[in-house]
Amino acid sequence: MTMTSMRVTPSVRPRRQWRGWLFVGPFSAVFLVAFIAPVVYAIYLSLFRNRLVGGNSFVGLENYLQVFTDAQFWESFARVALFLAVQVPIMLLLALGAALAIDSARLYGAGIFRIVIFLPYAVPAVVAVLMWGFIYGNSFGLAANLNDAVGFTLVTPFARDWVLASIGNIVTWEFVGYNMLIFYSALRTIPADLYEAAELDGAGALRVITAIKVPALRGAIVIATIFSIIGSFQLFNEPNILKTLAPNIITSYFTPNMYAYNLSFAGQQYNYSATVAIVMGVITAVIAYVVQLRGSRAETR
């Protein structure tokens, strides 16, 4: 290799070159096939309907109007909205607390906590749900052991009133460590002189958290919130796998994604299924965008 010193070239030519496409081109080509094309095809499908008489015909926005008056869709939507309102704050607060604790340098063996709490992220959702599903079960799970020990039915994770909380527990277990790590990484980037200045001012630990650490976390909190909103609205794996263990409680339209899936695979209603997927995608993107906007506005204030 010939270059050993860094030469500063006169940057007089902001000429636009096509060779950047040599690098971006392959990604863009696959992106068109695997991302843009399905979206376009789904929009196309959503404008048609397969009728018994007359076959496939153009119906304009009729499918969309149907979604907005579809009780099953709105029931599933309300369920994930409730899930979002309860599970996401709990998970993010737990993650925040854990990140602050690990970052505080006051834990024995902080490294162990960081790695072990993150570990469930690497566990496939299928395995996480199977483990927790068995643990919840009354045949050989820990729930059964617990009920035997106390002598009456204390916990019923699969009861109609509890199943959403049971799913919330699985999702929290899977992702609390991931969010903790995002927060922890952001905390590690706070420059040491900020802490030194706070120390000179005589600020206590609590004051350091509220005045330095939490403001520094704002960007990370926005990112984690957006990913959690997406995750909640797109909930599928956990309820769909638990369905085998609690078949009468978890319906085929338990979440919007399960509804879209079952419309396609049990009902053969491809056009309507595509419409549901689009509506949910748009709602998710809009809410994520609003959170992003509000988050960054708060940052500049």
Binding site: F31, A34, F35, A37, P38, V39, Y41, A42, L45, I226, I230, G231, Q234, F236, N257, A260, Y261, S264, Y270, S273, A274, A277, I278, M280, G281, T284, A285, A288, Y289
Partner: peptide, 21 residues
């Protein structure tokens, strides 16, 4: 811009349309 927008589109939302195609 397109790629940044795509980050917000979750894989599961895309799965059913991709299957249909």
């Amino acid at each position: 811009a397109v790629v940044l927008g795509a980050i917000a589109v979750p894989g599961t939302a895309l799965a059913v349309p991709t299957f249909l195609m």
